[in-house]
């Protein structure tokens, strides 16, 4: 009876030892895996132990005696670079057009905002006519210039304007190409057929619906037309 009880106890202890061994191994592997998966986070958290923002190299480069001289030199260099940068900035009125939000900001020569409002810009529609002809209706981005200004502009409809409506394309100077009043009272040419002009579809201002031109409301267009000159900069993004 006594012997069997001792056997039972030693069996039990052996089982417990096995449980401890397996639990220990399981926990060890589990913690290890979690650590490996989070190596980057642990490495970031321990960076400060070995690396400090030590200024001695900068201190050594500049030299203790030349602190104020170097500071003055830096001021001078910043001024010179800033002046060079100013040469790129417009000293005449300019306009900035946002094609994502479809609005404009008009600035005077001192870079002060004088007017902002809604516009319509390119719809990013691609019109495909057969295999060889296609047009993408997008507003060009970057820095452009006002190349020409026209009062009471007449729109000479390009080929896509007919193709888009399922109409036959007329000859180059056919009267049906000319539309009066569609572009509003004024237009400013940006080159390559892109214009800033007025619109009959004022409810679409603030939306990307055009064939690449920038459409404006009447009052905004009048101010823009009167403020910008030939050569004025147009920034589109």
């Amino acid at each position: 009876m006594g012997a069997s009880s001792t056997d039972f106890q030693s069996d039990q202890i052996l089982t417990w030892k096995k449980i401890i061994l397996y639990t220990g191994l399981f926990l060890s592997i589990l913690i290890g895996l979690i650590m490996i998966l989070n190596f980057e986070k642990l490495q970031e958290k321990t960076l400060w132990i070995f690396h400090r923002n030590d200024l001695s190299r900068t201190f050594h480069r500049i030299g203790v005696e030349s602190f104020s001289d170097y500071s003055l030199l830096l001021n001078n260099k910043i001024d010179v670079t800033t002046k060079k940068l100013y040469a790129f900035l417009p000293n005449e009125p300019y306009i900035v057009v946002n094609t994502t939000g479809n609005y404009f900001k008009l600035f005077n020569g001192k870079q002060e905002l004088i007017r902002e409002g809604l516009v319509s810009t390119g719809s990013y529609t691609v019109l495909k006519a057969g295999k060889n002809r296609q047009w993408i209706f997008k507003t060009p981005r970057g820095q452009l210039k006002v190349l020409a200004k026209t009062k009471d502009p007449v729109w000479k409809r390009p080929d896509w304007a007919f193709i888009e409506e399922g109409l036959k394309v007329p000859s180059y100077n056919h009267p049906s190409r000319y539309e009066y009043g569609t572009l509003g009272d004024y237009s400013l040419s940006l080159g390559d057929g892109y214009l800033i002009h007025g619109t009959l579809y004022k409810r679409f201002l603030g939306l990307p619906v055009t064939h690449g031109c920038i459409r404006m409301g009447d009052e905004d267009l009048e101010l823009v037309f009167k403020t910008l000159k030939r050569g004025s900069k147009v920034y589109i993004y």
Partner: peptide, 22 residues
Amino acid sequence: SFLLMVGILPLFLLIYGVLIPV
């Protein structure tokens, strides 16, 4: 022994994968 078993691998990983490389 249990603590050693649980800690040995994480300790190795801490030294090999974190402290030495950092």
